[in-house]
Design a binder for these strands. Sequence first.
DNA 1: AATATAGGGTTCGGATTCCGAACGCAGTCT
DNA 2: AGACTGCGTTCGGAATCCGAACCCTATATT
Lengths: 156, 156
Amino acid sequence: MLAPMRAAEIAEQRCSIARPAALLGDRWTLVILRQAFTGTKRFEDFQSALGISRSLLSERLGRLVDAGVLRREPYKDAVRTRERYRLTEMGLDLYPVLMALREWGDRYMAEDGPPLEIRHRGCGGEPILELRCSTCGEPVGARDAEALPGPGLKVA
Amino acid sequence: MLAPMRAAEIAEQRCSIARPAALLGDRWTLVILRQAFTGTKRFEDFQSALGISRSLLSERLGRLVDAGVLRREPYKDAVRTRERYRLTEMGLDLYPVLMALREWGDRYMAEDGPPLEIRHRGCGGEPILELRCSTCGEPVGARDAEALPGPGLKVA
DNA sequence: AATATAGGGTTCGGATTCCGAACGCAGTCT
DNA sequence: AGACTGCGTTCGGAATCCGAACCCTATATT
């Protein structure tokens, strides 16, 4: 009832971009996930780190839990049981999406240089995303690819 | 004036994910871009392909033009001069973001299989995104990376 | 026992934003 | 002239956002 209805409509499109966009496509969800990838787990910590309103945060976290991106679980603090939100496997698999956004943001929207640098743990190198053809191994750009109808395309 | 004010606030965060998210993070912008990558260029074609309202489409296209992702230019039809929206270099560089979303969507939200298949033009293989360390060449997952403060991080 | 503090929310009302339908307007076609 | 097309803008109601206030559970303090 609280979830946006428009989102539901868009989500019904048989499009692999529209459906994730309906879930992730708002101004808070992506930064909530970014925060989750930095290790934030508790409601209060999300709230104070992001400055989001409690009601919105509650709704967004709930939606991500429903979608299976986050898991809500109780855990024992030093003193008592609390709740925390952790990325599921499905959530962790969003890492490339966040990295792609970050690379693009660093390139075009960070006039002072990147605010954060990502390092490969151990080796210290910089991880970068590459789009490569899994068959011939060549790098693929936007102009080198074409879209064809796939098995999930049913014309109603 | 028409642009969301909240978006502006989020955009001011010194975060390479928050800033792109403020531009791209709504339910329509990503599908508009997806459509642009399939070759759609004209206002009418976006509108009929997506079912978006004219006012929203107008506002979104304008915002993307202002951001430098699209370029609005007149061109000559067979009969007259029209306007069209084309991806700029900056816009084309969003391809990995869309592909990352699509891969994730295909994996987790396409119960009937992917609606579209992307093929490497010519070779016919499937392009896939890989996050690799540019130094050691190893694949990098969410757990293998860490974030460090970079040059753009100024603590106010 | 009563009060205080903390985490994790929900409720409420006003301000924003969204959206579809209607309208504008310029340039063609008949 | 009148109709049509492409590309928008305007308008008003509906949906969403957000901050402040409230609620509930549980431990800590007086």
